[in-house]
Design a protein around this nucleic acid. Sequence first.
DNA 1: TTTAGGG
DNA 2: CCCTAAA
Length: 615
Amino acid sequence: MVFKRKLDCVSVAFDYPNIPRAPRSCRRKILNKKNDDEEMCAMDLLASLAGKILEEGQSSSASSNAFEGNNNNHENLCKEVKSEQENHYNKPLKSESSDQGNSVSRPAYENTTDKCVVNSFSFPDNDAVLEQTPMSDDHKKGDVHVNTGFEQGEEATDGLGDGGLTTNTCTLEDKTALAVQFPKPVCVDGGDLKTPSFVNMMIPNGSLARHGKHTNLGRDDDEKLYSSRKFSNKFKSYRAPTIQRIRKSKYWKQVPKDYGHNRADVGIKVLHRKRKSCYGYNAWLRETIYKRRRSPDRSSVLTSDGGLSNGSVSKLHEKRDSVKLSIKSFRIPELFIEVPETATVGSLKRTVMEAVSVLLSGGIRVGVLVQGKKVRDDKRTLSQTGISCEENLSNLGFTLEPGPSKVPIPLCSEDPLVPQTEMTSLCERSAAASPTLISHAGDVIMDNNNLELVPYQSEISVDEPSPDSRALVPLSALEEVKALAIVPLNQKPKRTELAQRRTRRPFSVTEVEALVQAVEELGTGRWRDVKFRAFENADHRTYVDLKDKWKTLVHTASISPQQRRGEPVPQELLDRVLRAYGYWSQHQGKHQARGGAPKDPDMNRGRALESGVSV
DNA sequence: TTTAGGG
DNA sequence: CCCTAAA
C-alpha cells in the first residue's frame, strides 16, 4: 500500500530545512555527537512504534521494521510500545457515526478501488486508538483519504452511499473536550474543531516517555531533532545553499530571526509526556492544563515538559478578559492511503497510523482559523482577531499543519509600490503549494495593519499537483508492510526539503511601469542598476527578479492579449517594452557604458521597428 | 556579485 | 521563481 501526503509537503519527514537552526558551529557539534546513541530521535520513536504495530498485526510476517534500521536500541522500546499498543487495542472502541467532525467519504471512483476520505479523526476520551470502521469485504481494496478539508464533512457524506464501503470511521467523542479555563468562560462549540488524532495516537505510548531524554525535540532542542535525523546527509546537500543564500543576500530581510518557537512542539513533544496513569489526548491535556495552572506565568498551554505551545491561547493572559476554549478536534492535513480491500481493519489502522507517524515526524504546527480563515498574525491579540468572549467562538478553529510552526516576524520593509491588496493575496498560492511556505507568506504580510486573514486552502494540492501524489500502487498484504515503512522514506524529496521558495509576488502595474522606465533608460543588461534605480526600496525584488520580469514582459508583449494571464498590463506599457527591447537589442552596449538614457531618435526607431509586432 | 539563460 | 555557469 502506498500512502502519501497529498500536499506539497508530502515528505514532511524530510522537512529539515524548516527546522529552526542554531549557528552552524553549534550544529556541527551536535551533529557530530549524534549516534552515540542514546539519542533517539522522533523518527526512531515513531518508526519503532509503527514498526511494532505492524509486527503485531502481521505476526506471521516477520516484518522487519524498515524504520528501525540497525539500531538495536529500539528493541526494548519496541517491546514496550507493543505492550502499550496491545493494551489499547484490547480496549475496543465503538465506531459510530458522528454528526460532526469525522468522516470517511467515498468519492465516486471506479469500482475496482474503493476509496474514502477521512476528513478528520476523533478520539474518544481516554482512548488513544485510532478507530477505523471495518470495511466491507466485498471489495478488493479501498483507498482512504485522510483529508484536512475544512468543510468536507458534507461532501464526504455525499459520496458514501453507493460504494458499499463503510462510511464513518473515526468517531469523535468529546466527552472531555479540552477545556482551558479562564475567568470568563466562553465555549467553543464547534464542529470545526477537530482533534488531531495523530497526536492522540501518540499519546498511548506512555512508554515512550521513558526515553524522553532521547527525544527532547522541543523548541529548544531543535538541534537535537535535527541532529538526530537519519538523513542528515541529504539534509546537508540542500541546506547549505539555503543558509548561504540567506546570509549573502541583502534582499532577504524577511529571514526569520526567531528560530526558537515552534516546530514539532505539538506533535513531537507529546512523546515526552511523562508516563502517567492517564491515557489519551484529553488526559494528556488535562495534565497539561494542570501544569499550566501551577505556573500561570507560562504563556503556553503546555509547559516545557508538556511540549505543546499554543500561541493563541497564550494571548489569553494579556488581558483581563479571558476566553475559555473547548477544542474538540483539529483538522489535519490530508493523507492519502490505499489498502487492499482484503486487508484487515487492523492493517488499515496501522496504515493510517503509519501515515500519521510520517506526518508527525516532520513536525507540525498549529494554525488558527477564524471564520474559516487562517489567522497568521501571531502578534495580534485574540480580541483583535475576533476571538473573545463576546464573539461566537464557534467560528474559531484550529488546524494542525505539517512543518515547523510559523515564526512571526515583524515586517517593516515592504515594497511601497505594491498595494496592500496585492500583498494579502500573495500567500495563497504558496500556502496552497506548501504549508511550510505559509510562514514566509505570513511574514510578508505581517506589517499589514489589517488583520490578515488568508482564506484557508482546502484544496492544497490543486495548485501544484504532484504527479505522483495520487499514485496508487497496489501491493500484496505482505508487501504492504514493507512499502508502508519504506515508501515514505524513499519518496523523492519535495520542495519542502529544499530551500523555501519565495512567495510569489506578481508585479503590479506600478512596478512594471517603474521597471519599463528604468530599462528604457538603462538598457537590458544592467539589472543591478535597474534595481537600484527603480526598486531600491523593494527588498523583495532582486535584480534577478527584475531581469526575469523583463523577460516575461517581453514575452507577454509578444503574444496576443488573449493568451496573457494574470493582472493585465496596459498595452501602453507593453508597447514600451517592445520598443525598449527592440532598441536595446540593436544597441547592445553602445549606451550602456554611458549609463544614460538612449536618445529619442533611437527609441523612435525602435518603436518603428517593433510597432508591427506589438500590434 | 552580476549577468545571462535555461528550467 | 529557481538554479547556475560565466564573467
